[in-house]
Design a protein around this nucleic acid. Sequence first.
DNA 1: TCCTTGCGTTTAGTATTTTCAACAATTTAC
DNA 2: GTAAATTGTTGAAAATACTAAACGCAAGGA
Lengths: 192, 192
Amino acid sequence: MSVPLPAETSTDDIGTRLKLVRQIFGLTQRELARRAGVTNGAISLIEQNRVSPSISSLKKILDGIPLTLADFFTLDFSPSDEVFFTAAELTEIAYQPEMSMRLVGRKAKGRALGMLRETYQPGADTGDTMLRHEGEECGIIVSGSLTVTVGVQERVLNPGDAYYFRSDIPHRFRNQGEEPCVLISANSPPTF
Amino acid sequence: MSVPLPAETSTDDIGTRLKLVRQIFGLTQRELARRAGVTNGAISLIEQNRVSPSISSLKKILDGIPLTLADFFTLDFSPSDEVFFTAAELTEIAYQPEMSMRLVGRKAKGRALGMLRETYQPGADTGDTMLRHEGEECGIIVSGSLTVTVGVQERVLNPGDAYYFRSDIPHRFRNQGEEPCVLISANSPPTF
DNA sequence: TCCTTGCGTTTAGTATTTTCAACAATTTAC
DNA sequence: GTAAATTGTTGAAAATACTAAACGCAAGGA
């Protein structure tokens, strides 16, 4: 993984936009072509902006992701700056000598979150068919380290580090370290 | 005017969707073609769903309206049932013997509106280059009658009748009666 | 090293869309 | 009423998009 950070895509740069979306969902041109029922060559040409696809083709392709035309033109796929936070970037919201509440991402912007304590043994992996579901998702590493992939971004998170992202962006968790990893995670709407 | 009520358009019925949008903005195929720099034949074929336009063509066409691709696929152009209300359909929210407050459209759904008293002399007309601006707009007829056109819909409103619509849908007011028309109107965000 | 596999790209041919021009139907003007 | 103008539609030619197959390249595995 570890794709270079993509720039913002304008509405009329369909090629870059499609490529970005495809990469975010972890698909190759051939795999997407297979799902969509078009040829990989067509996708290649579109992504290079050497042709302007017909609506019917574009729709077929997006159906393979899947993504609606409206979402394709509406959504902002540029990675948010606020996906990752270092331990130092967490907001202390209630400090007492025996306890500390540190909030991920400045302020809880009216989000209703359920919270979990998870343990990943060394080698544990949610798999490379990346997870994807409704809602938002948030977590903080307690001990050990965890490799987290969110769309095109990937980071190894260490104790105190955290993540926050929309769950409909494909994501994956792996413990590539040698000790168990404990993290506190939260999701919305609460699924557990 | 007085176009038959169009049905809801699905995302993949591009033809009907384009036709509806074009009619809402009061353009002929030829006029839109001229603005967009395509031929009228192309628009005709697209509207009949006999071809699936390329993104570049569709974008050129929408630029002639103008409308973004995102808006085209996102916006719900089907006329809301809640555009027009008869006097009897207004919601009485605070009745006292000496005063009555009647609300247009069930409930104020968190909308911030500015309000005006307008008078249209007989023959007055906001013109057929239809008005279009951000925000929402609302009004109620006090005396006289007023012909109001909103997108594809047109109605002659009499005292007590009212309207409520999004201001980015083209609209027009005309007094085709023989006495002055007084109405109370409101808009958001307040522009006066 | 060699072979295999999988990636994005390219090319030539086919399929589709778009233009251009003419058409029929309706409206506007005289 | 007729003529002129305007509307949406259509057919053949030109332009463009899509397919199928091959290419070059890089990464693993014997």
